[in-house]
Write a protein that binds this DNA or RNA. Structure first.
Lengths: 209, 209
DNA sequence: GATACAATTAAACAACTGTTTAATTTTTTT
DNA sequence: AAAAAAATTAAACAGTTGTTTAATTGTATC
């Protein structure tokens, strides 16, 4: 599916509002007003509010797919280097698309069996397969341990980075980093989160190092 | 503040619905119906929907405060033992009160400067102080490293355990644990998450071991 | 048993909800 | 330039929203 300029504008405005106020607390009129389009255009283009968020999910997920899978087929990299690359890419991505990932986290927590839950599950399965592949390679090359809980490692990576991002203002205050610009601070935080997860992965995957 | 039976019933029903459908997508009529009380009773007791969720937060937070702080003053425990105890207590708590912690996670992510954000910040500050105290003790006794990022460690613990809980069905399917009862499975998951975080803490805090 | 206060109710309130309609304008195709 | 298709609009739709009202019932206090 490809979207024209106005459709993208609506989706990105909705993304921001959903992330800031929650899906249920955001009205289509708010979206229309902020996006500067007529109210009826949302139904015209997307059909409904529910289908709008589904379109947003498709729109954001379509760009993700190819990035990693090709990068990780690189034969010149060791399994651990691939894991490190994966962590860097993931943290970069959720920082860059923090609005979108906020929405994903909230939707993930709701019990309803929506279209979005299905799309999320598919993405998780793809990501797990990539991870599985790297780890299997590391195990074959006797570099990684045999008893690795992949899903748990994903919880560490996804959970830690999400929380660190949501908790960023607390981090900033606690470490007295107010003198940094927003960009400088985010760069620093990103780096520290990445290093933290890499360290955990190394300790858990390899025979200590 | 103390609440009568009916007030508690309303708060706990609201808690379940907020966690399952989100705050914005839950109507006061749904809450009244499910709780078996008249619609007007919610305004009568709490004033508004917003104040209802604030009351819920107070209600749930009031029970938490004392548990840890006393346990951790125990002189017969080493700093590492205290950290392990803290992890166990935390994971236990969010599993037992998973509805409530779902709500906290979602509220934490919203940009609005609500009463709840303030309450959450205060709780975080108290928790950080407790953690700070244990770690300082470990550093004085030369058992813990000097360069420890407390806030990052909290992100690891909070983020990982939240995500593991939300992701539990994926974990169950991936590890083919469908034959376990819900209780058995949750007990297993809880144990694994606890062990995972303990291992990370040990590796990051001590001089390897 | 009267008085005062708390609890409960159904009904009403105005504002807002997502979505549709039907008319009009703009753009594209022929 | 005519015809067809797409985009845009203001207005209306019926249903839901959170909250309040005013009347009634229940329960203590004197």
């Amino acid at each position: 599916m490809s979207y024209n300029e106005k459709q993208v504008q609506i989706m990105e405005t909705a993304e921001e509002l959903f992330a800031m106020n929650g899906f249920g607390s955001t009205s289509v009129r708010q979206i229309a007003d902020k996006a500067g389009v007529n109210l009826a255009m949302i139904s015209y283009y997307f059909g409904s509010k529910e289908k709008l968020i589904e379109a947003l999910v498709d729109y954001r997920m379509s760009h993700v797919r190819l990035t990693l899978e090709n990068l990780l087929k690189d034969d010149s990299l060791t399994p651990l280097q691939k894991m490190n690359l994966l962590v860097t890419e993931y943290v970069d991505r959720i920082v860059q698309r923090h609005h979108f990932y906020k929405i994903m986290v909230t939707e993930h927590m709701l019990d309803k069996n929506s279209e979005i839950t299905v799309k999320l599950l598919k993405m998780k399965q793809r990501n797990t397969e990539v991870l599985q592949q790297i780890i299997s390679e590391g195990q074959q090359k006797k570099m990684f341990r045999k008893d690795v809980d992949i899903v748990m490692l994903m919880s560490v990576m996804v959970g830690t980075s999400n929380h660190a991002l949501v908790n960023r203002e607390f981090y900033r205050t606690y470490h007295k980093l107010e003198h940094l610009s927003e960009d400088e601070f985010i760069t620093l935080l990103k780096q520290r989160v990445t290093e933290e997860i890499k360290a955990i992965f190394k300790a858990q995957l390899t025979y200590e190092g």
